[in-house]
């Protein structure tokens, strides 16, 4: 028996307006993603892979179609409901890390937990756990500018993990990293998918990075071609 998909996308389209011109970023896309999958979205620039990722993660809206994540149609949520939903269900990893420079690594990881009802001690425990998971247990008091790019991206992964989300979305997480750091980051994402049954959706241009995923989807001109 096949389990219900954690992400179910049907006839998803996204149309932008750039002045007088209509740009179709996604055209009638339909996919299912199962729990624990590590899906890699690939394709040339402008193919719609990042747009698809953003819509799945609830930071962009579709023009038509449905996006069900754990049975919830994300398109029907209000801005406020979407914000709560993201906090509880989605962990973000960005290409340029996007850590808050005035906060330490531990404080950056703690940020999403400030929106929860957890007490200070419990938050600290979770932060320590997340930092330990990415191998940075001893760097919690360092600020981002005191860390390498690879370490910063690992802190970003710890921040994405700390709320124990079902979905981790990563937008070119290795784009700004050297080969060694990229391997470390991809290994962590792979382990999360494989060992912790987290569903990881990653956008990348790098075919080597795609090798870490369990499935690759190729997009061109807003459509899945392979």
């Amino acid at each position: 028996m096949v389990a219900d998909p954690i992400v179910s996308i049907r006839d998803l389209s996204k149309v932008y307006r750039q002045g007088e011109i209509q740009v179709t970023a996604l055209n009638q896309v339909s996919i299912d993603i199962q729990t624990g999958e590590f899906v890699v979205l690939m394709g040339p620039s402008g193919s719609g892979k990042s747009t698809l990722l953003h819509i799945i993660a609830g930071i962009d809206r579709a023009s038509s179609g449905s996006v069900l994540v754990q049975g919830i149609n994300v398109a029907n949520l209000t801005e406020s409901q979407l914000a709560d939903w993201r906090n509880q269900n989605v962990g973000f990893v960005f290409q340029s890390f996007n850590l808050i420079p005035v906060l330490t690594a531990a404080e950056n990881v703690e940020l999403p937990l400030l929106l929860t009802a957890l007490g200070r001690a419990e938050r600290r425990r979770q932060v320590a756990l997340a930092l330990d998971l990415v191998g940075l247990a001893d760097r919690g008091h360092h600020r981002p500018d005191q860390m390498s790019g690879g370490q910063q991206q690992r802190v970003a992964i710890a921040r994405a993990l700390v709320t124990d989300p079902t979905l981790i979305v990563a937008d070119e997480p290795t784009g700004n990293l050297d080969a060694k750091s990229a391997t470390d980051v991809l290994s962590i994402l792979q382990a999360l998918s494989r060992d912790s049954r987290k569903t990881v959706i990653m956008v990348t241009h790098d075919p080597k990075a795609a090798g870490y995923g369990t499935r690759s989807l190729h997009l061109e001109k807003g459509e899945i071609v392979a």
């Binding site: 993660a57 930071i59 801005e79 406020s80 914000a83 709560d84 993201r86 906090n87 509880q88 973000f92 960005f94 996007n98 808050i100 940020l111 999403p112 929106l115 921040r159």
Partner: peptide
Amino acid sequence: FRELAVLKALGFQRRE
């Protein structure tokens, strides 16, 4: 702006 967008992505509401 970029950091505020990240906070929004993490689940912070407009009012926050």
